[in-house]
């Protein structure tokens, strides 16, 4: 007995749609982030497992796909922020203020990057601040202005970028990656205004 044509059409449709859905899910899973085990602290997110032997297949695939080489877990932790402390996405046309405190670490750096992780071209040619390179107030607190136009004090410019990420790196930090983080120990990102 011959199967009716409708069976073949359905089988083909199921196979094709399943294949397309699988590829779409793969693309979505590898588009941003690094698999499982993300740590959140306010607007900041880190993936401590990518720097060690317990890296999961999704993180492996994401690293290979995007051509990245992470920091080793004992070397440091990279935190990314795509939004301000209120949850609004970072916009190159707005001005932000990143304010202390920072978690304990031997060194830390704060810089800006494009969503794909490239450095941003900016008129000042300054790309980062570090625990060793920063103007501090009395009592060692600080803030860093992020704005296109010049600001007094610590100032980073996203240049002409429309969207950007803030990258915080803690080198040799005693933070426990298995526990949850105290977001009060991480810098806040407050939107001051938009052009």
């Amino acid at each position: 007995m011959r199967a009716p044509l409708i069976i073949y059409i359905r089988a083909f449709a199921a196979a094709f749609l399943g294949w397309a859905l699988g590829l779409a899910l793969t693309a979505a899973a590898l588009h941003s982030g690094y698999g499982f085990g993300a740590l959140h602290a306010g607007p900041w997110t880190a993936w401590p497992r990518i720097g060690g032997p317990e890296i999961d297949p999704f993180a492996r695939a994401a690293l290979a796909r995007r051509g990245e080489a992470p920091l080793g877990r004992d070397q440091g932790l990279m935190f990314l922020a795509d939004s301000d402390s209120a949850g609004a996405p970072l916009d190159g046309g707005c001005e932000y203020r990143v304010s202390s405190p920072l978690p304990a670490a031997r060194f830390w750096t704060i810089g800006l990057a494009s969503p794909a992780g490239e450095p941003l071209v900016n008129p000042t040619n300054r790309h980062y601040y570090a625990s060793t390179y920063l103007l501090r107030r009395e009592g060692s607190s600080f803030d860093i202005a992020i704005a296109r136009e010049a600001r007094p004090g610590n100032w980073l410019s996203p240049g002409d970028a429309k969207v950007f990420r803030i990258v915080l790196r803690l080198y040799e930090t005693p933070l426990d990656p298995t526990g949850s983080l105290d977001s009060g120990a991480f810098p806040s990102i407050v939107k001051v205004g938009c052009a």
Binding site: T26, P57, A61, A64, G67, E68
Partner: peptide, 26 residues
């Protein structure tokens, strides 16, 4: 059900293969 099963297999296979086939890895 067949479609979701195929989607899951494609997802797992492509994620596992990615480190071997990614053209622009580090």
């Amino acid at each position: 059900a067949a479609m979701f099963l195929i989607a899951a297999i494609v997802l797992i296979v492509s994620v596992l293969l990615m480190p071997a086939v990614a053209p622009r890895d580090a």
